[in-house]
Amino acid sequence: MKKLSKIYLGLVLFFLYVPIFVLIVFSFNTTKSRTVMSGFTFDWYIKLFRNEIIMESLWNTIIIAVIASITATILGTAAAIGINNMKKVPKAIVMNITNFPIINPEIVTGVSLMLLFVFFAARMNFEFGFWTLLIAHITFSVPYVILNVMPKFRQMDPFLYEAAQDLGCNSRQAFFKVVLPEIMPGVLSGFMMSFTFSLDDFIISYFTSGSDSQTLPVTIYSMTRRKVSPEINALSTIIFLVVVIVLVLKNVIERKSENNKVKVKGEKV
């Protein structure tokens, strides 16, 4: 039984990883062949870094992800606080609308924003580009922040805020000293989600970007539509490496803080 489950796990992992490793291996191929390794080279990596379109869209992606996720986090955290204090019916209405971009297929969200932007672009004389992308990214990020922060209020001891006031905090101090630290884990995970979703988003960006301001996924898409280019393999390899490093670091840090918690607990006993 144990053995069987290990074999099963191995098979699933094989299925998940083989395509990625094939990409990585052929990123070092001297020819454009996708089946035969003719020799080892870093040429595609050099070409990749010299490719202005890719570099520019990478820069765009990062800037938009940073601004969008910070804005979404502030907007969403404030919203969560306000929504939490709403009466039952308005709260339900707001939460249902907030859930929409999460439940809805991304293509519908993308298309609906495109319709809005087309409508205003014609009347207010602006073009699709950086601003439309940014607005779209903030729009699909905020709901994730709200959904991450709201449960923290439910978990929080409802008397904490009152206790802080009882001990002499005014409402601003009570918020920053007591409430904010309590909901911080939710705020942070909301931010991280926004940031990664923004980096990774293709579908919504595809409908809301202009020709001069594209994100990396949109550029990748247009590359895959054209002829075979091992630059994509090189790019995949780099992205994969970054992902591995970030996730391993995150895991190590989490485990360390977990161990520390256990230690502190042990000392108390």
Binding site: L75, G76, A78, A79, I81, G82, I83, N85, M86, V94, I97, T98, F100, P101, T109, S112, L113, L115, L116, F119, I135, I138, T139, V142, I146, Y161, S171, A174, F175, V179
Partner: peptide, 24 residues
């Protein structure tokens, strides 16, 4: 904390960029 107005910026955003596009 008890102030509902703090959600106002998001509510405006929500109406303009979630609700209106869907209505469109």
């Amino acid at each position: 904390m008890k102030n509902k107005l703090i959600a106002a910026p998001y509510l405006v955003w929500m109406v303009v960029f979630i609700l209106v596009p869907l209505i469109m």
